[in-house]
Amino acid sequence: MPHSYLKHAVLPLLVVLATLGIALWLPDSAEHPAAQHPYFVFTALGVLAAMLAFSIAGMSFPPLGEAFARKAPFYAGVLSLFCLYNILTAKTALLPVLYFPSPDNIFGVFFEDMPFLLKCLAYSLRLLVLGWIGGIIAGFLTGVAVGFNRHVRYWVLPWVRILGPIPATAWIPIVLVCFPSVVSASAFLIGLAVWFPTTVLTASGIANIEKAYFEAAATLGASKSYTIRKVGIPAAMPHMFLGLFNGTCASFLTLVTAEMLGAKYGIGWYINWQKEMMAYPNVYAGLMVMSLSCFALLTLLFRVRNKVLVWQKGVIQW
């Protein structure tokens, strides 16, 4: 049956319409400060437009229509949660007004403060990428050296074990003294947070490689360095990606703390700053931006991993 996915779009569309109806026609509680415009309605209208666009586009491109049919109920579910939140805040003020602002006010931040949010995001990303790349390179090199060289293992591994588990942010007092600028200090902290899990899991990945792989390489005439490059490192890749995943999560955590060290801009800094100003709509908007960016970065990481580890069956799904 053609366009059978359309019936899956009916319920989500109804949810969007109900959300819109409640937002428009239920009277607002007087306790919430009024937003400049009904931004939540704008957002819901945006969702409605997107859903309609996808439904129509799906008629010409069936794969798009099927993807939409799979995803639409979920997005409708998210929207209905916002609708519930709208009722609890803007419509009835059942939740404490100061800490739970109305969705109009939250979404208003995106409309009114977007350039600044983007600037903060850019600053955060710069810091994150600097620290992350440094941490990964350092972690990979340490892990490979510890994994393949007896002497490095003897001299370096104990230090990794003793220094690694310290949460990166605990180094703040020392790092602030040692680094010339706040940016370099913060990037170092993020790098440190990424370095430890990457090192440990790279080294353990190498340690767990079946010995017979190296024997097979040796009987085929491969040199030591060729074996490390073509056998050791690829075989340890699944573990390395586990380390990268842990490290990336740790880097988000460290980022927020590192941005308290006197950063000028940054999404973690923004959330903290707005909290002190008691501007909770901005806090929520900042949280959403942060969540979406972290989600996007992790998704990117998993995409790369799936590409690199195509040879593995039954990879962990993200």
Partner: peptide, 13 residues
């Protein structure tokens, strides 16, 4: 040349 009990092919290749 050596053939192992389990094939020991490099599974990433």
């Amino acid at each position: 040349g050596f053939m192992f009990q389990s094939h020991m092919l490099f599974k990433w290749m």
